[in-house]
Write a protein that binds this DNA or RNA. Structure first.
Length: 423
RNA sequence: GGAGAUGUGGCAGAGUGGUCGAAUGCGGCAGUCUUGAAAACUGUUGUACCGCAGGGUACCGGGGGUUCGAAUCCCUCCAUCUCCGCCA
């Protein structure tokens, strides 16, 4: 959520930048400013009335004390009218605040100036490529076939126990999964991230804090009996640790990492894209989150991308880095880099990480601030990225490393798996 | 799940209808003193909104109510603690 003061001060730039995401912002921005003006004037009136009421109440108290009952009763009469109009003003004020909020909720983050124009993922810019796409033998299989052949993942059994999109990992498949989690966490910790194990369900306030609510409730599993949401990503509970917090400058940067399963309803997405591990309702992910000083957040974004690149290098997977165009940029993000690995048997790129700088967009909702050198409270910048999402990494590993003899495990994982080949 | 108690500023802890945004202590920050540090002393120390400013308004777990006036009374929700029950 953008701040109204920021909108007022940068109106022109904002409207211009919104064009990168094909968001026509002029009308809504004007509405917001107009409503905010109304908010100010009604508040002034309301404050004046309340001040008057407070003054009279004090007088009444004083008169009672002096035993001047009659005078006090007279003044009481005055306060009646004041109270009535105060209630009306208050209601108006609440209505305005609500309307203003619902407008602000509809406004996406302002894309960074280096975000390319564009409508869809076709317009994303490839800014980096690394690794060699392997040439597979003639009998190469897609990962879902491999998973079956080597008894690594049982999709049908998952359907029986829960439903589609909830696979059951078995044997070396489960072990490989656990190895990847440990590897990713160890790498993050080595890079200075503090490991946390957060709750897998969050309350409504947290879902608002990171922007899943009010618009994306359809994405999350909801438990009405307890009014809780299953997390769609560790970003939600980890970032919300810092909700309603005022940091000191010396606290920067805050670096957290956490492994969690992620739960996504993915309503309406069916077809070949969801085959095998490509899209699941429950999947594992290691997330990295940073809270940073606004002056340093873009440097930090680069280091986070470098961290993820390092992981992919070590796993020896061919990958590319994309700078997302405005049209593909998520609602809350100012700049996002996606990292995709090549899935050789499927012959397509799979998104395995998305690293974003949200600038103050989340911080504003979270009320996560810091005190600057002048003792003024300012909003922080929040950033996060997947490091990494497991299923597609697993898919690429299985497909790309398959040989006639079996599936080879990358060097770095062997200490974690305890085996070097699946056969 | 049942019964009871509690919820005040960074922390501890006063305050039970008016002069309370809130005593006091600790902590934090700035200064005096000191070669430096500690101690001592002095001052300062919540957040947000409105206003050019003086200043005003709101917030004492959340929400609602009573009252001219609420941290203080009532309702409700949430959290914590104690006891009982149940249970990894």
């Amino acid at each position: 959520m953008l701040q109204t003061t920021y909108i007022r001060e940068h109106k022109k730039t904002i409207i211009e930048r919104f064009k990168k995401r094909n968001f026509e912002g002029e009308e809504i921005i004007n509405q917001i400013i107009k409503l905010d003006d109304e908010r100010k004037t009604t508040q002034q009136k309301l404050d004046a009335q309340l001040a008057e009421g407070n003054k009279l109440a004090k007088e009444i108290g004083q008169l009672f004390k002096e035993g001047k009952q009659e005078e006090a009763t007279q003044i009481k009469e005055q306060t009646k009218a004041l109270k009535e109009s105060g209630v009306a003003l208050k209601e108006g004020q609440n209505k305005i605040a609500e309307d203003l909020k619902s407008l602000l909720y509809q406004v996406p983050n302002v894309p960074n100036e280096i975000v390319p124009h564009g409508n869809s993922d076709a317009d994303n810019e490839t800014i980096f490529e690394e690794g060699v796409i392997p040439v597979l033998h003639d009998n190469a299989l897609p990962h879902w076939e491999l998973a079956k052949k080597y008894n690594l993942i049982d999709f049908e059994l998952g359907v029986k126990v829960t439903g589609a999109g909830f696979p059951i990992y078995k044997g070396k498949g489960a072990r490989l999964q656990r190895a990847l989690i440990s590897f990713f966490l160890d790498q993050a910790v080595e890079n200075g991230y503090e490991e946390v194990i957060p709750p897998l369900m969050v309350n409504e306030a947290s879902a608002y804090g990171t922007g899943q609510l009010p618009d994306k409730e359809g994405q999350m599993y909801y438990m009405p009996a307890d009014d809780l949401y299953m997390i769609p990503t560790a970003e939600v509970p980890i970032t919300n640790i810092y909700r309603d917090v005022i940091l000191k400058e010396k606290d920067f940067p805050i670096k957290n990492t956490g492994y969690t399963p992620c739960f996504r309803r993915e309503a309406g997405s069916y077809g070949s894209d969801v085959r095998g591990l490509n899209r699941l309702h429950q999947f594992d992910k290691v997330e990295i989150v940073q809270i940073q000083h606004p002056d340093k957040s873009y440097e930090t974004l680069d280091t986070m991308v470098d961290h993820v690149k390092g992981l992919l290098n070590k796993l020896e997977l061919p990958y590319r880095v994309l700078k997302l165009c405005g049209g593909d940029l998520s609602f809350a993000s100012a700049l996002t880099f996606d990292l995709e690995v090549y899935s050789t048997a499927q012959k397509k790129w799979l998104e395995v990480s998305s690293v974003s700088n949200f600038e103050t967009f989340q911080a504003n909702r979270l009320k996560c601030r810091y005190k600057d050198g002048n003792g003024k409270t300012q909003l922080v910048h929040t950033l996060n990225g997947s490091a990494l999402a497991l299923p597609r990494i697993l898919a690429a590993l299985l497909e790309n490393n398959q040989t006639e003899e079996g599936i080879k495990i990358p060097e770095v994982l062997i200490p974690y798996t305890g085996f070097d080949i699946i056969n």
